[in-house]
Amino acid sequence: MTNSSDATAQAGKRERLAAAAARVFHEQGVEKTTIADIARSAEVPVGNVYYYFKTKDQLVEAAISAQRRGLRDLIARLEQHEAPQDRLKALVRTWVDQRDVAAQFGCPTGTLAAELGKRADGLDREAAAALRELIDWVERQFAGMRSGDADELAVALIAAYQGISLLTNTFHEPELMVAEGRRLERWIDSLVS
């Protein structure tokens, strides 16, 4: 029989491994990452990883889930802004604040989705679902601004971010993200005028 503190410790270690997997996959890519890399990042013995995750693909799935939890946490913080326009601009500022990470490794969700998109094993759809969740939230914000083409605007905003993340990473120039952030905020403002 497992007591509640053991169950809590196991859940904590599992979450720590999932977060480490998300971080290491972002920094190194799925194919280059070993289970030992993830264990080292999570500061657990390699053998412990196999207790929670039998395969690397299970770690990828856990990393996607960790990213989705992070996205939901971000959305909860953004929802504290009263107006949809302010929520979207806060989202853009969040991206700009992460410009140094983007310059070094790209967008965590976008790079994982791009890498997994080359596979057809279900993980590609899981990664796409994370991006879809963000697009759907952005679409609701544009709809709240009374934009009739909210679906197209949502895709345009996410595409602009993914594109600037790629360029910021390719050229290792965080200031590209800053300039695009300013442009996106002006664009959002122009839609309510």
Rank of each mutant, 00 (worst) to 15 (best):
M1N: 07
S4D: 06
S5V: 15
A9Y: 04
K13T: 13
R14F: 10
L17R: 03
A18M: 12
A19D: 13
A22T: 07
R23G: 06
H26R: 05
G29Y: 03
G29M: 05
E31Q: 13
K32V: 05
I35R: 15
D37K: 01
N48V: 02
Y50G: 03
Y52K: 00
Y52S: 01
Y52D: 03
F53E: 07
K56Y: 08
Q58G: 13
S65Q: 14
S65M: 09
Q67F: 06
Q67I: 02
R68N: 14
G70R: 01
L71F: 03
L74P: 01
A76V: 07
H81C: 07
A83M: 14
D86S: 13
L88C: 03
K89G: 00
A90Q: 12
L91M: 12
V92L: 13
T94H: 15
Q98T: 07
D100I: 08
A102W: 02
A103Q: 11
Q104C: 11
Q104M: 13
P108Y: 01
G110S: 02
D124W: 05
R125T: 04
L131G: 06
L131T: 06
R132P: 01
L134Q: 10
V138T: 14
Q141I: 11
D149Q: 13
A156G: 04
Q162S: 13
Q162Y: 09
Q162L: 14
G163R: 03
S165D: 14
L166G: 14
T168D: 12
L176K: 05
L176I: 08
V178E: 14
A179I: 08
A179C: 02
E180H: 09
E180K: 10
G181R: 11
L184G: 05
S190C: 05
S190T: 13
L191N: 04
L191E: 04
